[in-house]
Structure formats: C-alpha cells, structure tokens
Design a protein around this nucleic acid. Structure first.
Lengths: 197, 197
DNA sequence: CGGTAAGCGGAACCTTGCTCCGCTTACGAT
DNA sequence: ATCGTAAGCGGAGCAAGGTTCCGCTTACCG
C-alpha cells in the first residue's frame, strides 16, 4: 500500500495490468540489486535487471527513497510490530528494549549501505529517513517509557536520539573487522541504564 | 610538510616558484570552499576559487583525501598534542579523556561533512580515514590506558572503536535540531566509565 | 473493433570525477 | 642577456550516473 501510494497510483483496478506487472518486476529487481550492490546501485542497473526502461522506474518511484521504502516496507513493519511483542515476552522492559535494538541493528547491517543512506544530510534519502522515524519512533518511545516506568533507565535519552544514534553507529559496520557496532551500542545502553538502588 | 610530501614533491628549493604559489592558492581556496560547501564540494569549484586549472589541483593533490588532509593538518596535529597536555592538566585521566573527546567532537562537527566523509566505505576518503587513525589512535590509547590504570574504566572499549564510534555519532550532527551527538557521546562515556567501588 | 489516454522506453542533457597532452614559462647554464 | 629544457599549467574530453521529456505502443472501455 505504501508502495502504491508513494508511486502516486491508486492500488485499485483503475490501473493497467502492465503497470502493475512492471511495479512488481521493479520491486523484485531492486531487492536483488540492493543485496548485490547496496541501495546506492545505479538506477540503470535496477531498470536493466527488471527489463524495463529508465522512464518506467522514475514513473513508479519518483525518488530513490520511494523505491527503498517500498522494498523494505515489510521488514520495517515487522520491526515496528516486534516492539510490543517483545515487551510482553521479555523479563523486563529494558530487556525488551535491548532485544528490539538487536533486531534493529540486524536490519541495518544486513542491508548493505542502508545505515549509510539514512544520514540525514543526503537529500536523496530524506524521505526514507522520515519514513523510518515515523514508523519506528513511536515504538522506541513505547519501549523507553516502559523501561523508565520500571525505573530501569533515567530520563537521559530521547527516542529519536536513540534511534538516530544506533543508526549512526551502524554506518559502515560491516566493512572493518576492527569495528563492531554492537559493542558500542552495548556500552551506550549501559550508559542509558540506571543502576537500581 | 605533509602537504608537500603527499603532493609528491620535495619541499625544498628544487620546486618552481609558480608551483609553490599554486599550492598555497589551492590550500586557501579549498579551506574556503570546504567551509561553504563541505568536503564533498566539486573539484572544479575549488579550482575555480583558486583560479587554476583542474589539472593543477590533481597534480598537487592526486586524491581528494590528500587535499583534505593538507587543509586540516594543523588542526589534527593540535588535537593529537592536546591529549598528553590534557592528561597533565585534568584532575583524573577520565576527565582528560572527556575533554579530549570534546575537542574531537568540536573538530568534527565544525567541518561540515567531515564526519560523513570518514565513513570507511567511501573509497575516496580511505586515505583520510587512515591518516586520522594513525595520528589520533595512539593518543586515544594513551588516554584510555591512563584511565584504565586509574581504575576509572573497564576494559570494555578499544581505542579504535571509541574513535570510530564518536566519528559515527557525529555524522550529520549539525543538520537536525532533534539530534545532538554530544548527548549520546556522554551516554556512551557513562557506559565506558566503571563505577568506583 | 476502434479510439484514446495510460503507460512505456530510451535518447538526450547535466553534473562531476579524472586523464592526458600540447603549450607556457621559470630558471640554471652559458 | 640569452637560450634550452623540463617542470608545470590548463582545460578539452571521456566515463558514469541522475533526471527529464516526448513520440510510440498498447491495454482497456464502450
């Protein structure tokens, strides 16, 4: 639905069959190319993989962010839904928070270059950044509030900063064996955690 | 000296006067353009600002990293020298570490886009990354060792990871009022700090 | 089955990085 | 002062990638 909306088309039966087909081909091709070459892959490469013209890709997904958003929509959705579920399952809210962040990191480092793309000064990805924040920040807020209510953490961190910080720490996280973003995120969480009295 | 060496020329009297002049013009122009447009500014823009041809800029600074390195050489040097000085001045090694990191962050957020450029997956800046690490990691090691010896921190962090993490947290740090890298770095340091018994 | 507009493809243009080579000129030798 | 030469200069030109635009095709409705 987001994909269809973002491409400026109603999802209903008003669309031509070939247009729907091409959109599917593009999503599949983009997913494949993103894995192989990262989300910065040339548009032409994606178009070629899908067997469509360049004009078609721009018609369906006017900006690169629209395409990335559409490709990862399901996974972002799953991440958003995992928040409350973890809160129900885990021993404490802080444990839920930690596990949620683990999944977040998994997502970011798995998608080659996704974390890099999220840096806000890259205008091509501004919409992607917005989408992530809109969808995930409420979840982070929920988790942080629960942990705060349980007295596990202090008020020292805001949800947006936490998400942004984690995203930043994941930048380039798979290139260099000397650098493991998870270790730093662990330390950050230790800083967030408030020792019980 | 580094500038001269990196541009592949001896600094001595063997060089032509116009070459020396052009190198100076280029350094001044680059410094100006970096402030205005970030370290990603088009090469042509820098060449135009300096009033020289494109060939000249490539001859003096074969890679972009060489130019950036030369422009910020003095400041990196000052940062490196500040480490031991702070250690001598501050009340405790951890306080010195914190103040050194403050200066590091100042440097990164002041230079528009410098932190972004340091992400290692950008091949254009690999040499820049290397230069920073070579020069500053020993300083960070020294500070961390001193703090560890004083029992202020545990062994949970490695110098490279600390520097890299701080650099990453500074990415895009001036664009968004909702995000202040310093707050997250504070939390990270709280995580690094080991509570005294 | 025909008319039509939605949709398609890719030529073409722009920006930017980088190379290469013919021309200019600084400067040591005479 | 003059000259020869190589160090140095400038920018044309090529490659790569992003984005626009428009003539052609074709799915779909009546």
């Amino acid at each position: 639905m987001v994909a269809a909306e973002r491409s400026g088309q109603a999802p209903g039966p008003g669309r031509r069959a070939d247009a729907v087909r091409n959109q599917q081909k593009l999503l599949a091709a983009a997913a494949k190319v993103f894995v192989a070459s990262g989300v910065d892959a040339p548009i032409r490469e994606i178009a070629a993989e899908a067997g469509v013209g360049i004009g078609t890709i721009y018609r369906h997904f006017p900006t690169r962010a629209d395409l990335v958003t559409a490709v990862y929509h399901h996974q972002v959705e799953a991440l958003a839904e995992a928040g409350p579920a973890l809160l129900a399952d885990a021993d404490t809210p802080f444990a839920a928070l930690r596990r949620w962040i683990d999944q977040f990191v998994d997502f970011l480092v798995t998608k080659h270059g996704l974390a890099d793309a999220m840096r806000s000064d890259d205008t091509r990805f501004a919409a992607l950044h917005t989408y992530f924040v809109d969808r995930l920040q409420p979840v982070a807020t929920h988790l942080l509030d629960a942990a705060a209510a349980a007295g596990e953490i202090g008020p020292g961190i805001r949800p947006y900063e936490l998400m942004r910080g984690i995203g930043n720490l994941c930048v380039g996280g798979t290139d260099d064996p000397r650098y493991d973003p998870r270790r730093l995120i662990d330390l950050l969480l230790q800083g967030v955690r408030q020792p019980r009295p």
